[in-house]
Design a protein around this nucleic acid. Structure first.
Length: 512
RNA sequence: CGGGCUGUGGCUCAGCUUGGUAGAGCGCUUCGUUCGGGACGAAGAGGCCGCGGGUUCGAAUCCCGCCAGCCCGACCA
């Protein structure tokens, strides 16, 4: 049998969408379930999520937040309290109307007509309303503020067009919800948490993100201001990787979060909310994956190092396995960014080549092979996921143990550098309408999925222009980048569409 | 929710036009030979042909309905 050129078919440039789906499966991250729009997250995929959770949770705690848990079900009337919010979510809510099943006349199970809820419940698409109602009870005085709480939860949004990890009907996320005495404090919180997300994305996920503010059209329903981190994946589309919302007093007014102020007046609290989801897993796959599968940044890889014992002969097998486990023990004592290394010894009795390729497809950062000959020489064969599948180095065991964290950091840094270079190479400044339309018009109408990239252009700030661009090109304003982030972006100019004055450039792209 | 395509063993698919109760490759199991390697040979296991109804002596194949997936569109935090 001839060996395929790459482990994943099709390759990225052939059909990015299909490549993505194949990678998710080949890497054993997740699979579609029997329930429409819902996925089964498999151990390797869930392991990535656990790494993300662990790191983020520590960052939330370090910024003063505590975890709590609020109900999955929300009374329908709660959602209705905030007008924009209900507009934004009503169309995709799962609704619970009964609390009992019974056998109907036709012998089939059905919701019991006698058990209809007096008020339907919705399955939370997000928890602002239920948490707001709770905070309203908790807050009496300015001394009760701030409230800084996060919850790890699942949410349901009945999506028309699911896409595994990126947009599923049910997904896992965290949602932080805070309430503050002043608007200044709440804005600071919103910005602080965006900063946490940006740091996490860059340092842990190796994703180069732009931070910025959403335009009015792209804002979270009910928010005064939505901040976002946006990154580029390999089909040059943008992905919103996390958001942080300043909710003003909108939800406080809707839920009645009021307090007696320092000057003895009744005030509404200022609230924020912020979240990231399992969408990050999809983002990492699309940002770093190659034609052999997933490439995981070491900091979020469930197993950072996989040891593959090579046991060709029975008489040396025990010695090889022993050496493999000993090496694993030594490696597990090493720390990478403060955490003990996550090392797996794969002793499954399957073909060595097959086994190697499995780990390549899964994206394990480092593979270490150890066999009888290595034992004699006191060395190992080390392969990195950011290099070719056959490319190996042969350090001694000691060199391997001592140098391993350097290797992991090189991989981590290399992924960020590569993704940054890719984004920058596909980000252009555009100053005329003609160029703008040319840039975003697919060169190949047959296969429009590989897009032009990011465009930094001036914009007059109007919803109309934004809408026009969206209709014509399916391009949206991903964010108004935070000042100081992109050299020259704050120089005034003229709107790329209307020619009207514009104070700065904004980021346009097609997006997920 | 509209348009298009698809749904056959774990995976990829053939068979459907011209109805006669299932095939291939990969994977899986066992044995053997190999083996720093996604190897080879042999023998096996595994399929309410998405679901429901209809036409028919007979349906994977024809008709209707439904469900699910993918792509495009609308929508989207």
């Amino acid at each position: 049998m001839s060996q395929p050129q790459t482990a994943i078919t099709p390759r990225r440039e052939e059909d990015f969408s299909e490549w993505y789906q194949q990678v998710v499966r080949a890497a054993d991250l997740a699979e579609p379930s029997d329930v429409r729009g819902c996925m089964v997250i498999k151990p390797w995929g869930y392991g990535v999520w656990e790494q993300m959770q662990g790191a983020l949770d520590a960052m939330f705690k370090a910024t003063g937040h505590k975890n709590a848990y609020f109900p999955l079900f929300i009374p329908l009337s709660y959602l209705a309290k905030e007008a924009e919010h209900v507009d934004g979510f009503a169309k995709e809510c799962a609704v619970v109307t009964h609390h009992r099943l019974e056998v109907g006349p036709d012998g089939a199970l059905r919701p019991a007509p006698s058990a209809e809820l007096t008020e339907p419940l919705i399955v939370r698409p997000t928890s602002e309303t239920i948490i707001g109602a709770t905070y309203a009870k908790w807050v009496q005085s300015y001394r009760d503020l701030p409230i800084l709480i996060n919850q790890w939860a699942n949410v349901v949004r009945w999506e028309m067009r699911p896409r595994i990890f990126l947009r599923t009907a049910e997904f896992l996320w965290q949602e932080g919800h805070t309430a503050h005495e002043t608007d200044v404090e709440a804005v600071e919180e919103t910005e602080r948490m965006l900063g946490v997300y940006a740091k996490f994305a860059r340092e842990h996920l190796a994703l180069p993100v732009y931070t910025g503010e959403k335009s009015a059209g792209e804002r979270f329903p009910g928010a005064v201001q939505t901040l976002t981190i946006e990154t580029m994946v390999q089909d040059r589309k943008a992905i919103q990787a996390g958001t942080s919302h300043f909710l003003g007093q909108n939800f406080a007014k809707a839920s009645g979060i009021r307090f007696l102020s320092r000057t003895n007046t009744q005030e509404y609290a200022w609230t924020t909310s912020w979240g990231v989801s399992t969408r990050l897993i999809g983002t990492v796959i699309m940002a770093h994956g190659d034609d052999d599968g997933v490439v995981l940044p070491p900091r979020v890889a469930p197993s950072q190092i996989v040891i593959l014992p090579v046991t060709p002969k029975e008489d040396t097998k025990a010695a090889v396995l022993d050496a493999a486990h000993k090496l694993a023990s030594r490696l597990r004592e090493q720390r990478f960014h403060g955490d003990l290394l996550r090392v797996e010894v794969d002793t499954r009795d399957i073909g060595g080549g097959t086994k190697s390729w499995e780990w390549i497809k899964k994206g394990a950062p480092v593979r270490i092979e150890i066999g009888p000959r290595d034992l004699e020489k006191g060395s190992v064969a080390l392969a990195r996921r950011d290099r070719g599948p056959k490319e190996k180095t042969f350090p001694t065991v000691d060199e391997c143990v001592e140098g391993i964290t350097v290797v992991l950091q090189e991989i981590q840094d290399g992924l960020l550098a590569k993704a940054t270079a890719y984004r920058d190479a596909n980000t252009v400044r555009i100053d005329t309408k003609e160029d703008f339309y040319a840039f975003f018009t697919p060169k190949n109408a047959e296969k429009p999925e590989i897009h032009a990239g990011f465009a930094l252009a001036h914009w007059n700030g109007s919803v109309e222009v934004e809408k026009q661009i969206k209709e014509d090109l399916k391009v949206t304003i991903r964010c108004i980048p935070t000042a100081g982030q992109i050299p020259g972006a704050e120089e005034p100019g003229r709107c790329v569409i209307t020619g009207e004055p514009s104070p700065r450039r904004v980021l346009f792209a097609k997006s997920y």
